[in-house]
Every structure is written in structure tokens, then in C-alpha cells.
Design a protein around this nucleic acid. Structure first.
Lengths: 338, 338
DNA sequence: GTTGGCACTTCGAAGGGTCGAGTGCCAAAT
DNA sequence: ATTTGGCACTCGACCCTTCGAAGTGCCAAC
């Protein structure tokens, strides 16, 4: 093949192979494609076109004489250029909106209304995560009525995180007020490193108030730097586990670890999501791990001072058209209902 | 078999079958047992003893002419009466203690130090969860410096939970103080139902303070009744997924859902754990779901006003001796380090 | 109650034959 | 120069058979 540009026939064939492969699983042969064209060209012609698509890296075949299967590059081309966005039916929109009328979540909690609904509508695994913007902009220290000290800090926007502990040596209300003032003097705190630096400096100064400041800064730092803090909810795992590509134990096993640990999935979700239209990450684009055989359709929802992530995970052979529209719509509704 | 009491030979044979089956997976035959006895009795005798154990329900065999396999009842008897506790080596104890020197977790957060260490030591899946005691005993309302209202409440012991929101109509400090006093007047609140009942009554009364009280009670109720709130951490899922009993997709698939959802596992953990020595729940004792083919060795750690749960999950064919000692020890250290 | 002996059962791996789907390629047609 | 029909070929899936290994069940003898 000399010209790298695809002509119309190639595009149509690739589109058909992808969509047929998605809906039926398994390779697609020239006969099947011919039927789709309604007798306009012959199987031999199609075969030669497919050979060219294979040379270009968009198709593959498992062995001589199975049909063709899209490669990751083929899916990528399909997603980027070939597929048309699918208009959502009013029934789907209604179902999404209804699910979102339930009471919204606490700040910094993954939205519990979304994953179940999304998993059901997408017939895929759905995942939702939040992560705060991680700049401390406000802080309050409260002495609770039994001597426990509660630190509440506000991150960008109005995400509130808290930590409480029993301070050594029963400090008085004046100490707490002094400590609070001292902490506020350090704001904003932009990173765990910064918080720890402040803590080291505060440690050198004497007094009950300063002891509180040190403890507060260290707790804030620990929370800021812990990656494992993002709240993640997963639902519909049965959908992905019952896909044909995950029938072999060797494929299914990594999935068990992936979903049990959550962190890798959450990270892929955060990496693969952008604001606005849902973004697609196909197979090995998700990295070398267990997600190599999965695709992710994800969106980031901004608002309330935090990043909220909504995604759908499935096999690489995923109905991207439908899922992209669906996830995009859910993202829109979520940021509107803000 | 007329007498239901097991004689010494039966006990020794059952013990051996269990332990051999655990270490090698797969049925145990009379030849193998004879080797373990060092030629003292003949295979034929062993066979007849095993036939009796089978009649009693402790052994099973997959088909004529495979060896014997313990039934759940067989494992139960082994765990309750046959196995001797395994003394832990000093290396193991040192490893456990070292892992626990890292900084302890926040209140109401599953201990992040434990699951990784336990999974590695047990060579099984490890799970850790917390759940507060769920009686509200104290409450504080704080107006943060940007108008956000923070509700901090204390459950039994000193678990602190918080919720924050932007109150309608910018209430003043006096309103907040009145609301706080009103809420404190209702304490202790023992359930979500109780909180909601208070909210309904408060709604009838006018005033900015009462609006705050209503919102606070409803938020507390929502948190009290949500079962999904328990923090759960799972590690070492690869261990259980690579066990021979989970090689078939039909066995592995339910495991994917179980670990992705977490709730069923958390509930089984809470149900199967007691204080002190680790308790064992074998197979279908865990209920009818996906955990039917798993065993759980779990302990509950009391202290800091919450229940902490530590457990190990594996196939029914699990080295109970070692795992029970290990989990018990981890539980002890965890409650001592309190 | 215990033992040796022996026929029997069952599983699982290995081998081999057939079938269907689909390709690759060539020479002829447009 | 592209398209087409024709045809040999390839590969996996399925089914059947065979064969050996492991281990039992039972009986008669000790």
C-alpha cells in the first residue's frame, strides 16, 4: 500500500469490521461484510482491501483463515474518526436524570447514585471516584466537649476534610485559639511537603499551642500525600467478567486483583478522563498492567472544588459509540446539577 | 458405623487427610496415608476407616477411585478439635510487629498497615474493615470562616464523623449556637430512625436555627443508615485467584464481583469475627453467595470506640492452623498497641 | 479386626479424523 | 489498473477412541 490515506471503501469496511466485531465477538470474514454491502462488491475485493488495512496496522487476524479482528490502532481510528456519536434515546435520558434526583453525596465522597445506574445502562463495569484539589485554604480547630481536638480544613472550593485526635496534656481553649491562628497564618498550604516543612519549623517553638500546630500539620500532610485516599466505587463487575475475552483464567485473574486493589483503576481513571466529552483509553494505552486488555471511557466533572471522575470499563471490544454518548451525558448532568 | 464417637485412628486419618489435602490440593489416597503412618497399618484397613469417615460425613470422594477429600464438616471438625495451634516463629512475630510500627490510621479508617503485611505473611487474601459503634453521643456545629457549616458528631467511644454543607440564608453565630444546643438536647441518638423522627419534629418549628437542626439530623441519619460506609481494604487478591479451586471461570467470576463490591465481604467479615482468638467460617457457613467456596479467618479488635475487623480469606482448603495463629496474633498486637 | 489380592471404575491426556469457515493467490474479465 | 471467480490450502473446533495411572470395593484368608 503506497498511499497512507484511507479511501472511502477502507473506511466503510473498517467501520463495519469494528462494529460487527463489537456486537458479535469473534473475527469478521469477507462474506459477512459482503452481506452488509448488499451485493455491491465481491468477497475477493473485500479481502484485498482487508489485506491493505492489515498492512496499515488496523486489522489483524488470529491465524490464516479466521476472519479479521480490529487492532488497537483500528479501534483508535474508529473512535477518533469513524464512529458517529449516538443520539441518546429519551428513555435513557430520563433514566439518568431520575437516578440523579436522589440525594447528592457528601463532599469528597464518590457519588453513590452514579455507578449502579451507569453500570446498568452501559451494561459494563462502572466506576466513580473523587479527589480533592488538594490545596489547603482554610482551617478550623475545634475542641470537642470531651477533650478531643477536631481539625477541619478546607481545600480548593469547599471540600472539607477532617482529622481528630486526643491532644497530649489537655490544652485549654486559649491554646486552641492560638494554634488555630498560627495555622491560618500559614495558609494556603499547597502540598504535603510544604505542610511538613511548616511542621518542622513549628516543632522548634515551645508551648502547648505549638504542639497542636505540629500535630495538625502532620495530619494534614499525611492526608495530602496519601494517594490511597481517593474514594472509589465500582459496580457492575459481573458485566466485564462475563465477556468472552475474560473467560480464560489467565485473563480473569488480573481482573480480580485490579478490582480488589482499586488504586490502579482509580489512577487510570484519573489519567484518562478530561472535562466535557468522554475520553476513550484503549487497551495498552492504559499502561502495561491488568488494564492492558480493558478500555476506559471516562469523564471528569469539575465543581464543588474537587475533581469527580466517572467512567465505564469494559473489554477493548466495547460499544464505544453508545458508551461515549452515555458517559458524556452523565458527566454533563452531573456538572449541571451542581 | 454404629458408634458416632471417633476413635484415635479415625482422628489421625482425618487429620492427615485434611492436612495433606490442604498442602497438595487434590484427593488423598490410602497409599499416601500408609506412607505417613510408616508401615504400621495396611492400605486396606485405611480404606475401611475412610469408608466409615465418609459415612459419618467427614470425607467425600469425587468419584469411585479418586482418593478422599474432606467435606466442610470434616474441615469443621479439624478446626474445632483436631488441629493444634501452631506456635508462631520469632521471625513472623518480628515481621508483624515491624509492620505495626508505621503510623496508625485515622479514626474510622481501615488500618492501612495491616492488609499488605497480612496478605504477604498468610499468602492469602487479607481484608481489614472498620465500623463505628453507631450511637451518636456528642455533636458540635462549627461555622467555618467562609459560611460553610460543619457538623461533627461523636459516636460511641471517640469515633468522629463529619458532614458539611452551605446552609440556606446565611445564619448567624447565634443561630448556630442555638442549633447546636438543640441537637445536644436530643442526644444520645441511637439509630437513623430516631434521628429522622427528631428531624420530622424539628421541621414543624420555625426559625433559622431549626432549619439547621433539620439538615444536621438528616445528614447524620443518612450516614448512620448507609451500610456502605464501612471502610474496607483488601490486599493479596492474587493469592486466592491463583488457587486451583478458582481456576474455572465459573468459580473465578463470582470472586470478581465479590471483591469489586466489597460489601458482601465486609458483612461476612463482621459476622464471622469475634474478639480474642480468630474465628473460622468455612464455606457455606458464610452464606449462599460467592463466599460459599471461601473460608474466612477473622478477628474483631475492640478499642478506640470502634470495631476493627481483620481477616484472611482463602479457599475452603486453607491452612487453618497457621492462619488462625497468625490472625489471632495480629489481633492481639493491634489491641495492645491501642 | 486386619490383611493381601484382584477386578473394576473413572479421569485425563494423547492421537487422529472430519467439518466448516475463511483465506491467499492467480488468471481472466472489465 | 482494478475487480472478479475459482480453487487449493490452512487452521481451529469438535468428536471419537485408546490407553495408562490412580485408587477403590470386596472377598476370602489370616
Amino acid at each position: 500500500m503506497t498511499e497512507s490515506q484511507l479511501d472511502e471503501r477502507h473506511r466503510r469496511i473498517l467501520t463495519f469490521v469494528v462494529e460487527r466485531h463489537v456486537s458479535r465477538a469473534g473475527p469478521v470474514g469477507s462474506q459477512t461484510i459482503r452481506a452488509a454491502y448488499h451485493l455491491s462488491i465481491s468477497p475477493a475485493t473485500i479481502r484485498s482491501a482487508m489485506q491493505q488495512l492489515e498492512e496499515m496496522g488496523y486489522l489483524d487476524h488470529p491465524h490464516t483463515s479466521a476472519g479479521r479482528v480490529p487492532t488497537e490502532a483500528g479501534f483508535r481510528l474508529y473512535v477518533d474518526e469513524l464512529m458517529k456519536p449516538e443520539p441518546l434515546g429519551s428513555a435513557v435520558r430520563r433514566a439518568v436524570n431520575e437516578a440523579l434526583t436522589a440525594s447528592p453525596p457528601e463532599a469528597e465522597e464518590a457519588d453513590p447514585r452514579v455507578p449502579g445506574m451507569l453500570a446498568r445502562m452501559a451494561r459494563q463495569l462502572a466506576v466513580v471516584a473523587v479527589s480533592g484539589a488538594r490545596v489547603i485554604e482554610g482551617a478550623d480547630l475545634v475542641l470537642l466537649d470531651d477533650g478531643l481536638l477536631l481539625l477541619a480544613w478546607r481545600e480548593t472550593g469547599s471540600v472539607v476534610a477532617t482529622s481528630s485526635w486526643m491532644p497530649a496534656g489537655a490544652p485549654g481553649a486559649a491554646d486552641v485559639r492560638r494554634a488555630e491562628a498560627a495555622i491560618r497564618g500559614l495558609l494556603p498550604i499547597r502540598s504535603a511537603v510544604e505542610a511538613r516543612a511548616h511542621a518542622v519549623r513549628a516543632r522548634r517553638e515551645p508551648g502547648a499551642a505549638m504542639a497542636i500546630v505540629v500535630e495538625a500539620l502532620e495530619r494534614a500532610a499525611a492526608r495530602l500525600e496519601s494517594e490511597g485516599r481517593t474514594d472509589v466505587r465500582i459496580e457492575g463487575a459481573d458485566h466485564i467478567a462475563s465477556q468472552p475475552e475474560f473467560q480464560s483464567p489467565d485473563r480473569l485473574r488480573p481482573l480480580v486483583s485490579l478490582l480488589a486493589e482499586r488504586e490502579p483503576l482509580a489512577r487510570a481513571l484519573e489519567a484518562g478522563a478530561g472535562p466535557g466529552r468522554a475520553k476513550v483509553s484503549i487497551g495498552s494505552e492504559n499502561g502495561p498492567g491488568a488494564m492492558r486488555h480493558c478500555s476506559l471511557v471516562a469523564v471528569r466533572v469539575e465543581g464543588r472544588g474537587m475533581h469527580r471522575f466517572v467512567g465505564v470499563m469494559g473489554p477493548v471490544r466495547m460499544p464505544y459509540r453508545r458508551i461515549v454518548s452515555l458517559v458524556t451525558y452523565v458527566g454533563e448532568r452531573l456538572s449541571e446539577s451542581e
